[in-house]
Design a binder for these strands. Structure first.
Lengths: 154, 154
DNA sequence: TAAAAATCTTAAACTAGTTCATTTTTTTTC
DNA sequence: GAAAAAAAATGAACTAGTTTAAGATTTTTA
């Protein structure tokens, strides 16, 4: 996926690891999410509104995804209304985790955010580069390096 | 609503303004959201899981709310399955705005976050104290004061 | 497997944001 | 409408996180 495109699919990851990110005016990447096995990914805003996405998606490992198009997504609800419930609960859970993340972004220090990330995603922390982790935590790779060596020393 | 309670209701605001916030170990308040007319509020995580909430909710103006209990919420879906769709779309929209907020929290400076807030919520910015706004933006009231006078000077 | 490219580390100088203390302004209460 | 309480402003000293630059380590590619 490339910034500027209109998102045609939502993806479910069956294998691998991907990063979803924006690039700001200064060329600095900011990582919105990492998607590993059993995660949904894409840009739900662009998928819904058909406006262009600000995100790039790149696989960081060989990956396998399933995609659902807007047409099939709508059709799914029409033909099998029980899927409304499925997605209602899926979005509700997603919402809970994004509410938590947005609160942590404004109330925790970078070091605390790193410790939380490690605790919450022990399966991701060793699969991504420190540089990408820095982009997710919201700090520079240099400061990420300092934090990691400090936390490991503790 | 008080931290420690299990959330029994989700609320829809028909009049007024409320703040939803946590208080950290140092006694510093962090504001998760302001809820004005036509907003839903509460703690959806505690409402769903029946675990205790970390949030306080306080009205900052005289307010009127409608509340729905968990029992009635479940009953609603049972009796009128079309409401699954209604909530599916409601959560989908909410999700979009929290994804945006969590990205801004890690990629923008405090000044940029303030400017975005003013642009996105012109109807809220003048209804809340600077201190509460600081708690939402994620900075101290002192720094909020500096930013506001700087931005007004521009 | 050597060379090139990317990532990670370290350190010094800098800036965004905090802390603490004091004064001024606004709001609330009796 | 005076007194008290809360919010806002200001400034000086501080800390968390950035920037720039250079060297060390790991990964990728030919």
């Amino acid at each position: 996926m490339q910034a500027g495109d209109v998102t045609k699919y939502e993806y479910f990851v069956t294998k691998g690891c991907l990063k979803v990110y924006t690039i700001d005016e200064d060329g600095v990447p900011h990582i919105s999410m990492f998607a590993v096995e059993d995660y949904w990914t894409g840009d739900i805003a662009s998928f819904m509104t058909k406006e262009s996405t600000p995100y790039f998606i790149k696989a960081t490992e060989d990956s396998e995804l399933l995609g659902i198009s807007w047409t099939n997504y709508e059709l799914l609800f029409q033909e099998i209304p029980k899927f409304e419930r499925f997605y209602r609960i899926l979005y509700q859970r997603s919402l809970i985790s994004y509410i938590r993340r947005s609160n942590q972004g404004i109330s925790l220090t970078a070091e605390e955010r790193y410790i939380e990330f490690k605790k919450k995603y022990p399966n991701i922390v060793n699969r991504v580069t420190q540089k990408d982790l820095a982009g997710y935590i919201g700090i520079t790779p240099e400061f990420m390096s300092k934090i990691i060596s400090k936390v490991n020393r503790m």
